[in-house]
């Protein structure tokens, strides 16, 4: 389990990174946290000819927050979210989600952006980005573009990023007053990839849901936002009966995958449970 040979470059600036990406395209890989890439390389499942280490690009290591939301730079580690990065429900939710990502030492290295670029369907950040309608900023020598999260994931380990593009930033909309969130994940052991998880965010006004976000992950080839069910939540009080109904409809709406850890039938039931528990937490 030793990686195949590669050329290693550690550029000092973003423009150098983009130039290298433009030059090597599919022959290269970006090394940020490396917590998914390096295992794949050790198993020789990934054999990039060139590895571009972006860990020295300090300009990518930031979290900024303003009224419109949170902007997360490509070098932001999972551990940055251990403590709330922004006051209010968003920071608290990100902190709770982060504690479910793998384990403490992995979170010291792995990055938010790397999780999205890797596009593992069981990734917590992919669920967060999908459910909250994140925007993805990609840069290349050709310029910069913003990708709506709905257009970003193409499937397991597959995204809309071009070979010469670097995911530089993620923008999460703010969750201001009245928002409440709930997150529930089930995995075989603490820290394992989710067999099923759900994220809910509800904005209440006088006890009535005015906006809703609901997503599930770990179920199929990408995280899924359940827009129809969100619409059904709006205007109601997110009562236990309503939550049961939504959970059942979530159950009916997904077509889960099977693997050695979970049958499709079991995953489908987990979706219902995760949705029920995430909504119950948000509505509590």
């Amino acid at each position: 389990m030793k990686p195949a040979p590669f050329d290693y470059v550690r550029p000092a600036s973003l423009s150098e990174v983009l130039a290298l990406l433009a030059k090597h395209k599919d022959d290269c890989k970006i090394l940020a946290g490396g917590q998914s890439l390096v295992p794949a390389m050790n198993f020789r499942l990934a054999r990039p000819a060139v590895l571009i280490d972006i860990n020295d690009i300090r300009e990518l290591d930031y979290i900024r927050s303003d009224d419109s939301g949170l902007t997360i730079g490509a070098l932001t580690r999972h551990a940055a979210f251990h403590r709330s990065v922004v006051a209010g429900p968003l920071g608290a939710m990100l902190s709770k989600v982060a504690s479910n990502i793998a384990h403490y030492p992995i979170r010291q290295r792995g990055t938010f952006a790397g999780s999205l670029a890797h596009a593992d369907p069981a990734s917590e950040w992919c669920l967060v980005a999908t459910t909250l309608d994140a925007a993805i900023v990609a840069k290349s020598t050709r310029g910069e573009r913003t990708i709506a999260i709905g257009d970003f994931f193409n499937g397991t380990f597959s995204t809309d990023l071009e070979a010469d593009e670097l995911l530089t930033e993620i923008r999460l909309p703010a969750l201001g007053q009245g928002w409440r969130t709930g997150f529930y994940e089930f995995s075989r052991r603490a820290g394992d990839f989710a067999l099923g998880m759900a994220l809910a965010a509800l904005r209440f006004e006088a006890g009535i849901v005015r906006e809703a976000r609901l997503g599930v992950g770990g179920v199929s080839d990408r995280a899924i936002r359940l827009r129809k069910l969100e619409a059904r939540l709006v205007g109601g009080a997110a009562s236990p009966q309503m939550i049961d109904t939504i959970a059942h409809e979530a159950w009916a709406s997904v077509s889960p995958i099977g693997d050695i850890h979970a049958t499709p039938e079991y995953r489908r039931d987990l979706v219902a449970t995760a949705v029920r528990r995430a909504l119950a937490e948000a509505a509590a």
Partner: peptide
């Protein structure tokens, strides 16, 4: 007794 096997016990074969 994996969760998937327990699920089968609880829900029956589907």
């Amino acid at each position: 007794i994996t969760p998937a096997r327990l699920h089968r016990i609880l829900r029956g074969p589907q």
